[in-house]
Write a protein that binds this DNA or RNA. Structure first.
Length: 893
RNA sequence: GGUCGGCUAGCUCAGUUGGUUAGAGCGCUCGGUUCACAUCCGAGAGGUCAGGGGUUCAAGUCCCUUGCCGACCACCA
């Protein structure tokens, strides 16, 4: 460890903004996050879901990043060799759109620039923004291994993508062919079904009459897109629809075009929608395409890739090359003129949009590259069904499996200006290839046709869907297809933490490709984190402007506070509304811890503290034993919460232990010992226990709040190495066998006594009387009374409740806690609070009543578990004793 | 249309396999110059657990049903 330790002055308040960047730098310089494949330790690995290279850290990244970091830090503390691998995604279609929008602001287009200049601009963007998000993850405190930073457009990654394509191609799973696709006229590319965003539109439904070719009758069809009728190749009716059965097998006459359309019977047609007759346009509607396939209908294309009407002979002259929208209006006019328009009505329906640019999707038939899914899918279904890969929360298993069951072939080609090129080449030297163009896929860029040696090869013009390349992320980043040390050591990864919206786009596809190429699952556990909505429950989005910038939150409250909040809500399994006050609360918690440490460290100054293991329970006073017992409980809970992917419960529980139990009860209880002479055994004990508690708290909280805890750790004895430094043995706390539940119960009663006295003394005129006095006597068998009745217990109660013991306190209030009757009063006479006593008597009677009724029920006693019945009996007898004391006090008062 | 989730204190949310008096943070009220901390300390008020029905000795928790909110999938022209 070569780096200088960061010295943080013990000022009154914890100032994260001053300390965090410096600490992070020191960690990075010390190489704490660099994974070493050759270290002989158990391994733990996560790959960071690669954010878009042009992106910025948003709240979702912060939450997911925090969760991943919690697990990486936790595993390092357990002695694991941890790899958390970072990287960014080129996000072809997204990046292209972002840059195009920037160009548009200057009134320019990418077409003006040309391909080469545009590519230069893109590279510039990658350089500029690729590092921005890296810096932002550092602000969060993410222990990513920056020496392994990857980008999906790195040369090595490009090779992995080509390799994957070529293998699938050679295995016959990738093919090229004409099929109906979602075409985005703006992006001038196809997009996959998953990238279509459906939005509600108010349109008009047009009813159009198609006369029968034989002159006998007509069919009326309904459509919102009359312009597509030009490409109609049939009319479909439901074969069970009595109205139309006689039409099946005959021909209808397509208005304006004059084409004869076969009438087919197809179950797909809903008799109760529209007229029950459907115009079939296989070239421009996915469902019609399916119908067309079933009945062998012709495919016509009427609308081209720029959404213009095509220049075909069968298109009426005046419509040709018009844009489709004005063509629609004209077609409606023409139909009306020729009396083919039966009626129109307003119609609300969902229309597909490109989820990147917002353009309305144009379904059309096009030559595209497809990936055949079933052979990839089946193993990926199996591993999840068998639980080899597990979703947390578990319900996403069903979401995943349901989607997988209905997988269709994946359109993997895009017609964009940037992205991974489809590694396919064409040799047009047909003479040497039996009169055909020879097509082949190649990982390396081929210099010549492998068959005929022709050097003039034509590369395929398409690029690949971004998700095709990110589907390889967990192993391509580790060097696949080479058999690298990283792959051998860190693959499969342990955890994938991601947003649920990309379960299909990304998670499913990683599972499928990994099983194909690595013959193994890519990750064991998939954590689907919560979505943080705005305070009104709306989804945060750039366009709405309701987003919360995590960096702004870090500036305000510190990374520790933002992380603790993220860890608390991130894995609850439920979406949450953003609540800034919770981040603020964690900032105050950080400050609280800081001050607890200041108190304890101050108390230990000049004291020869002893290792806690050497201190026998018999040497400790009850509060100290209690604190160590609670510590064991806290360790056990936190560990199991983290292990079972409930980091929120872990951080909440630790906050409770630190603040309520350690600070408010324990430290207050032992404070006097802190003021004894440094050599006083009680001072040594208290300081030793205090240091131990701070040390353990720093370790337990470190995965969540790494900066503050590290700053504290470095001040503690033995804290000469950073918490994340590699160690032989585990540094994560383990229970020390000091749990003492009987003592916890007794101290619990003592604390309750304190609280009750504080409450009772509140109404007394202590100022006039100078001091509030109490007297206590044991009036019933209660094991807790012994501790309370001891000198130790009396002193503690008196001090914490700020009262004095007296055998003759004027009783203004009578309290019954456990088996003790406690009289609370002022030194001067105070009027007895009859009303309070009476309320308590009544409440106790009511409780006795309830319990008696339960026990009176035959069925309860016979059917309930014995321990439940016994508990009710115990409660009843305790309540009766209590009532007796209260009534006695009441009669005396 | 289908699937899934939610409805618990003024607000944001916990509530493990059904079992004492349903919890936390924030907010609120009252009281505190306690020598670690006012980014604090102490005490308190506040909930017919969305409505209805059922199972059970016992339901916030299990089942049915209604309502409202949300997500995802599908895409009826």
């Amino acid at each position: 460890m070569s780096s200088e330790q960061v010295k943080v002055p013990m000022d009154k308040a914890w100032r994260p903004q001053d300390v965090e960047p410096e600490l992070y730098r020191s960690w990075e310089e010390a190489g704490l996050f660099v994974a070493h494949a050759d270290r002989p330790r158990p391994k733990f690995s996560i790959v960071l879901p690669p954010p878009n290279v042009t992106g910025e850290l948003h709240l979702g990244h912060a939450v997911s990043g925090t969760i991943q970091d919690v697990y990486c830090r936790y595993r390092r503390m357990l002695g694991f060799e941890v790899l958390w691998l970072p990287g960014t995604d080129h996000a072809a279609i997204g990046t292209q759109n972002v840059i195009e929008r920037e160009l548009a602001k200057e009134g320019r287009t990418k077409e003006e620039l040309g391909r080469a200049a545009f590519q230069k601009l893109v590279d510039e963007w990658y350089r500029t923004y690729g590092n921005r998000i890296v810096e932002q993850y550092k602000r969060l405190g993410a222990t990513l291994d920056w020496t392994r930073l990857r980008f999906t457009m790195d040369p090595a990654y490009i090779r992995s993508v080509r390799e994957a394509f070529v293998r699938l191609y050679n295995d016959g799973l990738i093919y090229r062919g004409p099929r109906i696709v979602n075409w985005c006229p703006h992006c001038r590319s196809s997009i996959s079904d998953l990238e279509v965003d459906w939005r509600e539109h108010e349109d008009t439904l047009y009813y159009i009459r198609y006369d029968m070719a034989d002159g006998d009758g007509a069919l009326v069809v309904a459509t919102v897109r009359p312009e597509t009728m030009l490409a109609d190749s049939g009319v479909a009716v439901n074969p069970n629809d009595a109205r139309y059965r006689s039409f099946i097998g005959r021909r209808a006459f397509l208005p304006l075009v004059g084409r004869e359309l076969p009438v087919v019977g197809d179950e797909y047609v809903k008799s109760d929608f529209g007229t029950g007759a459907l115009k079939v346009t296989p070239g421009h509607d996915p469902n019609d395409y399916e119908i067309g396939q079933r009945h062998g209908l012709a495919i016509y294309t009427a609308i081209d890739k720029d959404r213009n009407i095509v220049n075909e002979p069968w298109v009426p002259d005046e419509l040709r090359t018009r844009d489709a929208l004005t063509a629609r209006a004209r077609i409606v006019e023409m139909l009306r003129d020729r009396d083919h328009l039966v009626k129109t009505e307003p119609y609300t329906h969902e229309v597909g949009h490109c989820d990147r640019c917002g353009e309305i999707i144009e379904p059309l038939v096009d030559e595209q590259w497809w990936c055949h899914m079933p052979p990839l899918r089946d193993p990926a279904v199996e591993v999840v069904t068998e639980g080899k890969t597990r979703f947390v929360p578990e319900r996403y298993t069903k979401v995943y499996l349901d989607w997988m069951a209905n997988l269709r072939d994946w359109n993997i080609s895009r017609q964009l200006w940037l992205g991974h090129a489809v590694p396919v080449y064409y040799c047009d030297n047909k003479a040497d290839h039996g009169g055909q163009t020879y097509t082949f896929a190649s990982v390396e860029e081929p210099k010549a046709c492998p068959q005929c040696g022709n050097q003039k090869l034509r590369p395929d013009p398409d690029v690949l869907d971004t998700w095709f390349s990110s589907a390889l992320w967990p192993y391509a980043t580790m060097g696949w297809p080479d058999e690298t040390d990283d792959l051998r050591t860190f693959f499969p990864t342990d955890v994938l933490s991601t947003a649920r919206e990309i379960i299909f786009l990304w998670v499913a596809r990683m599972l499928m490709t990994s099983l194909r190429f690595m013959d193994d699952i890519p990750f064991r556990t998939v954590l689907i984190h919560a979505v943080i909505q705005d305070p009104q429950g709306q989804r945060m989005s750039k366009s709405k402007g309701n987003g919360v910038d995590p960096l702004e939150m870090i500036d305000l409250y510190g990374a520790d506070a933002v992380r603790a909040y993220g860890a608390e809500v991130g894995m609850r399994g439920q979406d949450v509304r953003f609540d800034e006050s919770k981040i603020e609360a964690y900032q105050r918690f950080a400050n609280k811890l800081w001050n607890m440490a200041r108190l304890v460290l101050g108390s230990a100054e000049g004291v020869a503290t002893r290792p806690i293991e050497e201190i026998q329970a018999s040497e400790l006073d009850p509060a100290e034993r209690w604190a160590l017992s609670r510590l064991d409980a806290a360790i056990e809970r936190a560990t199991s919460d983290i292990e079972s992917f409930r980091p929120g419960d872990a951080i909440s529980g630790l906050r409770y232990f630190a603040w309520d139990e350690t600070a408010d009860w324990y430290l207050e209880a032992v404070k006097p010992s802190f003021r004894l002479q440094p050599t006083d055994p009680a001072r040594v004990r208290a300081a030793s226990v205090g240091m131990h508690l701070i040390r353990q708290l720093a370790l337990l909280l470190h995965p969540f709040m790494p900066f503050l805890t590290e700053a504290l750790w470095l001040k503690l004895p033995g804290g000469d190495q950073p918490i994340q430094a590699p160690r032989e043995e585990t540094i994560w706390p383990v229970p020390a066998g000091r749990r003492d539940e009987a003592l916890e119960a007794h101290m619990g009663v003592l604390f309750e006594v304190v609280t009750r006295i504080r409450d009772a003394a509140k109404g007394l005129d202590a100022a006039a009387a100078d001091t509030v006095m109490i007297s206590a006597k044991r009036v019933a068998a209660d094991p807790s009374a012994e501790l309370l009745d001891s000198d130790y217990g009396r002193e503690l109660v008196a001090r914490l409740a700020r009262v004095e013991f007296s055998d003759a306190a004027p009783a203004a209030r009578t309290l019954v806690v456990g088996g003790l009757e406690i009289l609370v009063g002022a030194r001067a006479a105070a009027p007895s609070d009859h009303a309070a006593l009476e309320r308590e008597v009544n409440a106790t009677r009511a409780k006795i009543d309830t319990l008696e009724q339960r026990l009176a029920k035959e069925e309860f006693v016979s059917k309930a578990k014995p321990e439940v019945v016994q508990r009710v009996r115990d409660d009843l007898s305790a309540a009766r004793e209590r009532l007796a004391i209260l009534e006695d006090a009441f009669s005396r008062a």
